[in-house]
Computed example of a mutant assay.
Amino acid sequence: MRKVFFLLAMLISTIVVAQKDVYQFSVKDADGKNVSLSNYKGKVLLIVNTATKCGFTPQYKELQALYEKYKDQGFVILDFPCNQFGEQAPGTIAEIHSYCTANFDISFPQFDKIEVNGTNADPLYTYLKEKKGFAGFDLSDPTGKFMDQMLQKNDKNYKSNPDIKWNFTKFLIDRQGNVINRFEPTTKMMFIEADVKKLL
Rank of each mutant, 00 (worst) to 15 (best):
D138G: 05
T186A: 10
W166G: 08
F5C: 10
F80M: 06
C100Q: 01
W166Q: 05
E115D: 15
G133R: 04
K28S: 12
F108M: 04
L139M: 03
R2L: 14
L7K: 14
S160G: 07
L66Y: 01
I47E: 06
Q24P: 09
T143E: 15
K132H: 09
L139E: 12
L151D: 07
G177R: 10
S26Q: 15
K165A: 10
T119W: 07
K156Q: 13
V196R: 01
G118E: 08
V44T: 11
K131D: 08
A94K: 14
Q64T: 00
Y23A: 06
Y125K: 11
K145M: 11
N49H: 05
N83E: 07
T101C: 05
L124M: 11
D72C: 01
S38C: 08
F171D: 03
A102T: 14
Y70S: 00
N178S: 13
L45N: 09
L78S: 02
E68D: 14
S107H: 09
Y67N: 04
S98M: 09
F75D: 01
K28N: 13
D72E: 13
N103C: 00
I180C: 11
D72H: 01
I93R: 06
R182S: 05
L139N: 06
K156G: 05
V44D: 02
Q149W: 05
E184W: 07
T92G: 13
Q64Y: 01
G86I: 04
Y127R: 08
P142N: 06
N117Y: 11
D138T: 05
G136M: 01
G91L: 08
K165Q: 12
I192P: 08
I47K: 04
A89H: 10
E193I: 05
Q84I: 04
K131I: 06
I12M: 10
Q149R: 12
M1S: 14
I15Q: 12
K198A: 10
V196K: 01
F80I: 07
L66F: 01
Y158Q: 03
N120T: 15
F137L: 02
F171E: 05
S26H: 14
L66Q: 02
N154W: 12
F137Q: 06
C54T: 09
D195I: 03
K197S: 00
Y99E: 08
P90A: 12
S160K: 14
R182M: 03
Y158F: 11
V16N: 11
K3L: 13
G133F: 02
W166T: 06
